[in-house]
Each structure stands twice: as structure tokens, then as C-alpha cells.
Design a protein around this nucleic acid. Sequence first.
DNA 1: ACCGCGTGGATAAGTCGTCC
DNA 2: GGACGACTTATCCACGCGGT
Length: 708
Amino acid sequence: MTPIPGCTKSHIDSSWMFEDNKESWSTSSDDNSSDDGGSGDLTPDLPPNSDDDDHEHDSQTPSSELAEKIPGLTLGSFLHAVSWGDAGCVRDPQIRAARTTLMNSPELPVILKNWWMPPRTSASRKSRPQGAHSVLEEFTVECVRGTLDGELDTLCDQFRTPDDIQEEFFTGTHFKQLAEQCKTVAPMLWGLLSASAYTKSQVMLMIIAMLCYTHMHHANRLQKLFAIYLKFRGLPAKAFDMSHALAVTMSHKWASSHVAKMSASAMQEVTRLMQIYPWLISYDHINIPFRVFSQRLDNKDTFSSGVAATVYIKRQAQALAPEVSAQLRESRRIGMQNPITFSDIFKLSIQSYPRIKKFIVYHALRFLLDSPEFQFQTYTHRDSPLLQPLSPVHALPHGPEHVTLQYLLGSINIPEVSYADNERVVEELLRQLGLTSAWIGDQMTVDRLRGLFKFRSRDINSFDRLDWMVLIFGWLHLQMAFANSLHNCQPDKLLEYAHKLIDEHASSNAVNRMDVLPVDRQDEVQRQTILWNRDVLHYIVLDHAIKQGDMGLMEDMLPALLFRFTGGGNSKDFVREHCWLVNFDGKPNSFLPIDMAQEHNIKDIKVTYRSEGPNIKWEYFKKLHPAIRIIRELGKHMEQEFNTLARGKSHGTPKKDADVKLLESMYRAANVHDYTPGRKLMGSKRDKVQDVVVKGVVKLQSGPTLKR
DNA sequence: ACCGCGTGGATAAGTCGTCC
DNA sequence: GGACGACTTATCCACGCGGT
């Protein structure tokens, strides 16, 4: 026994394999030949090797000695006996120890490798000895197949989808993470793939997912994701069948029926949440032509008009509820006893204006800094404290648990806008939410509920419909056309410019200055532009405040907002429902995000997730729309996953560039920002912008508005 | 030349039976 | 019960034909 390990040990140093020495090559083949010759009949073409046998004494002598000691012993039968082939050898402690040593020895891999492909020098002209090439190859394949089967089985469990309806399923699948899991669960498959597929991990993940899917069609996690995602990115049914056949997605059939399930589940969820948390419903008509930006969309769609509604759930409000309602009662009591007067509001607005102005100036400055012409990246003083974002006046807590949930309800086909229809809409929405049976008989409840439904009036639509975005971009581009020339200015100089800009072009003071001029010195066009600038900046600051959850800033803005909405002819309800409510329940989701969100939803309904085909009717819309929220989240999620993986964070160029350019040239041609004494507005009186703030101040001062 | 109408292609949702 | 696939149904659109 002992000579054998000694024999192999003498050859474990594999450096000789790479020597060009002819002699050592022959000694090596001698070693192999003795192995193969020992096992006998596998490879008959070994005589050239056996010729060289006698050169190497170490290896030859022991084996022959052994053969002499035990007659009939071949290397094959010996190895077989040692390798658990003989009961006595299995048990014998000495053999067992030697076997274990061999099994764990570094020689073993080398032995096997040599069996698989007997080494030879690069100078060798002989054909390579067969060794046990085919045997080992078959054996390896068998091993690998067994392991892969096991790995695939475990992998299938990874790709199973217990819950494929909820949002978590669609946004909770992270490809990198999943790839890591696959790597750990199926190291061999992963290793093989990454060795032979020179590609990114998500491709290998997809290959594995496809394998699992063909293995068992319940292992379909990625297929489901891709099915829903691709369906709502406009993959046609034909292409769907194709990619289904390739095991990339689920069947088209599945996708469409699954959307219905998602909708149903979303409706269920919203009904459940509405019983727990405070909620608000907003709805809007979705047949409003959407022509402002997208002229290409005039595809003569004959959508009859209908209503799209969204439920907003304020989750965190519940935690606040007890004390807040008490506070609310208290402040109501105080409010009743000490009604707020005009001068109070006016004082508040005076007090808060400096704080607001800081933000206005900052945002104006931001336009400059963000404009590509300015090249902020290379600006010398870009770290100056003067240019840093302002800290919020009073920020609300934020985080995932504070997100306001929104759920689209099924769209309803109720054609015309009238109060009667509004009631029908409300009824239908309640019915969808399953509230009808319990509450519809109770007129009181319905009346109260109606206060929570927000029907958007027409006069604010254009403002809310993001039309102003283009105008703002135009405005800022005009202001910043000379941004490049400011590149070398000191930060404090920039700040000063921004102040000057606000004072002269975007403030009530500027308007006032204009108004005190004699009539023939006034410039109506410029005045109008100033008004627009001022209002839009307020809007931007408010938007910023809302986005940041900056309650303090929003409170500061309340007086100004009150002036605006009172003057703008919007109902007091508008202010009361939203601004004041915000004041009390301490939440940032005031009217603006809600309306914006509603517009987003409508855009999704009308443009992004528009279904085509003959069977699209309102019934189908009703079925589809509650699912849009999840679909949208999925879209975001997928693009995020793949952008970060494949394309980095590169953002596309703003689509509105052309619009902005046009607007800019129009502004420039019209000289709206220049002072032209005595200029009058062209066109009818109706085109003239009202200074709603002044009107609101006047109205508040004189009218009955405050009493309510 | 223009309009009305029928037809077939394209498309996608819906239905039903089958398989695991 | 979920997934699939063959088959059915419904609608729009392009095209062409025939009549005015």
C-alpha cells in the first residue's frame, strides 16, 4: 500500500508538465500508461507508452511488486477495492485512513485531470493519449446534470410567486438581488453560465428564469413582471405570443386577465383602507382635449366623456387623529370667538413675506444655476453658502409611511357636466367602493360625503393642467439667455441680481411702481408679464414647499393664497377645504399635489396606458383603471432597475425644448419684459390678466368672504 | 371626381375546454 | 385552481367597387 502514495507524491509537482524535456514527457506517459494499462482493456492504443515503461523505476517497481504479492491484482481492481468496492477495504482502518487522505489530497484533482487529458509537452508530435477522456467527460456531464437538476428545482422555488397581485410583488423584485440569490442557490449553473456567457448578470438571470419557467410554469416571477410591464409599454398581442413562446413572458391571455385581478384587488384594498383612514376623492373628466403640448395625439379618438376618480388615503393621519381632532375643536372654538380679521391676515402676510421672498429669490436664482448655459459644474463659487438650498421653515416628517396612497377608481361613462351628473358620479363611485348599500339611504351621510368629493371647476383647469410648465420654462429661458455671461460673477452678486430681478420683474412692488405712473407712461404688456412672473414664482415656491413638506413655508404662504383665490373667483370652499385643512391635519398633501396627481392619472389613462382594440369600452376602462397605479409603479421600477443596470443615470433631454425655444422667440419678439411707456394690450379686455391678489385683498377687506 | 357601402385584414378581448 | 391555447366575437381601417 505505502509505495503507491509515495509514487504519486513523487509526481505531484506538476511543473514538469510544462517542461520541454522529452524525457520527462515519456516518464509521464509511462505513469499514465501504467494506470491505463493496469485498468486494462479501455485503451488498446498504448503500446508506444508501454515501451517507455522501464525508464522510470520508482513507479514501475512497486506496482510490479504488489502485483507479485497479490496475484491477479490489476490497478483497476485495486483502485476499485480501495474505492469502496471491497467490504474488507471499506472497513480496514489503515486503508480507510489512506483513502480519506487520498480523497482530500491535492493530488486527486491532478490525477483526475490527467486521466481526463493526459499532459504532454508542447513540443510533442505524438497524438495525445486518450486517457480516460470520454469516461470522465460522460461522468462529469452526469454529475453536472444531477447537480443542475437539483439547483433548478431550488431555483424554481425562487421564481415561484405566491402573491402576484399586490404592489409589493411588482416593485419588490430587484434584479440584482435576485441574481445574487440565484448565485448562492445555484452556484454551479451560475458558474457555468457566467463562464460561457460573457454577459451581464441580468441576462443570466433571465436565462435562468426562462429555464425555470420551461421547467415548471409556476416558476414565473420574471415572466409575470415582464408580461405586465411589456403589455403596458405597448407590446402587441402577436409579439406577446412570440415572447411567450420563448418563455420570456406569460401568455397574452394571462396578462389581460391578470390586470382585471389587479384592479379588483386594488378596489378591495381601497375599500378596506377607507374604513380605517381618512380619505378624499377627487375626480375629473377625461374627455378634455389634451392638445396643448401634444399635437401629434389628435388621432380623432372618439372617447365619449367620462369621469376618472382617485381616492387619496392619508395613512398617517390616524395616528394623529385623537389629539388633532381635539386641537381642531379647540382652534375652532377660539376661531369662533375671535374671528380672524382682514388686518390679521394682512399682518400675517407682511410678516411672512420676507421668508417667502427668500424662497422666491432662491428659486429665481436656481433657474440661473440650473440652466445649461450657466455651466454650474464649472462655476468657481459653486460651494458658496449663498447658493445652497434653503432649509425649510418647518418640515413635516417624511418617509415611506407618510406617503399618501392614491388609488384610481374605475372610470365611469357619465357624459355631461352638470350638478345632476355630479351626483350620479358620486353615487357610482360610492357604489364601486361598496359603500352604497350601507350609506346611500342616509341622505345626511351622502351630504356630508359630498364635502369630501372634490369636483374640479373649469376655471382652474388650464392652470392645473401643467400648461404653465411651458410658460415657466420659457420665462426662465428668457431670463437666463445671458446666463453664460454670469458665469464669472461672485455668488453675492448673483444673489443681488436675483433680488433685483424679483423686485423689478416679479413682485407686487413692481406692479405698484407701474401703477403709480401716469397712464400714458404705463406698459400693460410688461405689467402683465410681471404679474405672471410673480404668480408663477409663488406657485413654484408653494410647489417646492409642498414637495418638501415644508409646513412652515406653506403656512407663511396662506395669506397670499387666500388673497389669490378669493380674488381669482374660486370658491371659498377651495381655500377652506384645502389650505385650512392642511393647516389642521398637518399634512403636506394639499390641493395642488392632488390635482396634479389627478392630471397624471388622467394622462396615464388617456395616453400612457391606453388600451387599443375593438373591445375597449367603458366597462373595460372600469376594469383596468384601478390597476393603473400598480402598473405605473411597475413601469417606474423596471426602468429604474434596468437603467441603473444597463444605462446608468443618464437622463433624456427635455422634450419641451422645441416648445420653449418657440415661446422664447415669441417673448423676445413681443418684448414682454421691456418697458415700453404707454404700451397697451392688444386684443379684447378678457385677455387681460387680473391681479387676483389685489382683487382678493379688496374683496376680503370689503366683502362677506371672511364671515363664512 | 366624389361618395356610400361591402369586404377582408388586423387586432385584441372573451369563452371554453384541457392539462398539470 | 392556475395557466394555456384554440376558437369566437367585436371593432376599426384600408381598399375597392359601383353609382351619381
